[in-house]
């Protein structure tokens, strides 16, 4: 009962392919209810925890909320994008990837879809953090342009982290392993100026904290949102992000191709 001849059908364009995969990943995100609740509840919990439990001790003046908002945003971005590693690893261990790979399309789109969905999820989570922070007394002094700059930097940071997690998901053998390796990255914000100024740390740790990429990102966002100076942190932050993004993207593409030859 052959009805139509599809042999002349042109496969989907690169843009159409990526659009389909992005749609798929966002749909999967919305369907993963536990992860979605986590993505919304976690920022609220962290915000409350740092402001009311630690905040009093860290800054008895009650102004800690203004200090900690950028740190919470990045911490949540870390948690939120970590699931990308699991999503990617799950896809790579399922039969579906073989189907995509045997179609005349650019199948790296599967990963691009997960990255785009993570960016979307985490920007929503960032919105939640800022909303809760405002309720708890966060008083940003940023102009419209400064807000744009801060949000742009946050989006860039999420993108960087998500591509890193995607690469981890691609090299990890199983989703569980991906989740384990990804955990390491979650500690980086604690070793930065996210929660306490680095000059309160012992000398050797201060060296690490001052020169790791998260500190300039935090400082730049803090400077943009509140009255502090941004200084060279802006360019440092963008520079770090650009370098790591490039590495993560190349690493991902390489790992994706290499996996193809293995299976």
């Amino acid at each position: 009962m052959r009805t139509t001849d599809y042999s002349a059908l042109q496969p989907a364009s690169l843009a159409a392919t990526n659009a389909v995969f992005i749609g798929r990943s966002i749909r999967l995100s919305l369907r993963n209810v536990e992860a979605l609740i986590m993505a919304i509840v976690l920022p609220v919990m962290l915000m409350l925890l740092f402001t009311y439990v630690f905040g009093g001790a860290l800054d008895p003046g009650g102004d800690y909320v203004n200090y900690v908002v950028p740190g919470i945003i990045l911490l949540c971005a870390g948690y939120g994008s970590a699931s990308t590693a699991v999503d990617v690893a799950t896809d790579m261990t399922n039969g579906i990837i073989d189907r995509f790979r045997t179609m005349p399309i650019r199948s790296l789109g599967v990963v691009i879809g997960h990255v785009a969905a993570s960016l979307f999820r985490n920007l929503v989570a960032t919105g939640v953090v800022i909303g809760v922070a405002l309720l708890l007394g966060f008083r940003p002094s940023a102009s419209f342009l400064e807000w744009l700059g801060a949000l742009g930097l946050i989006a860039l940071f999420i993108l960087v982290l998500t591509w890193l997690y995607a690469a981890i998901g691609l090299v990890a053998g199983t989703p569980a392993a991906a989740s384990g390796y990804g955990f390491i990255l979650l500690f980086l914000p604690y070793l930065s100026s996210a929660f306490v100024p680095t000059n309160t740390m012992p000398g050797w740790l201060q060296g690490v904290a001052d020169h790791q990429p998260i500190t300039p990102v935090i400082e730049a966002i803090r400077g943009l949102l509140t009255d502090g100076p941004v200084g060279s942190n802006g360019w440092l932050a963008v520079g770090w992000c650009a370098i790591i993004l490039l590495i993560a993207f190349v690493w991902s593409s390489w790992a994706f191709r290499r996996k193809a030859g293995r299976r």
Binding site: Y6, L9, Q10, P11, A12, A16, T17, V20, R24, R27, L28, R31, N32, N94, G95, I96, D98, R99, F100, M103, I105
Partner: peptide, 21 residues
């Protein structure tokens, strides 16, 4: 099975149809 388990049958078919052009 090379199917996306979190999607419905309809969504799976539709996705592949779109990818096929």
């Amino acid at each position: 099975a090379a199917v996306d388990e979190a999607l419905t049958a309809e969504e799976n078919l539709n996705m592949i149809a779109r990818l096929s052009g």
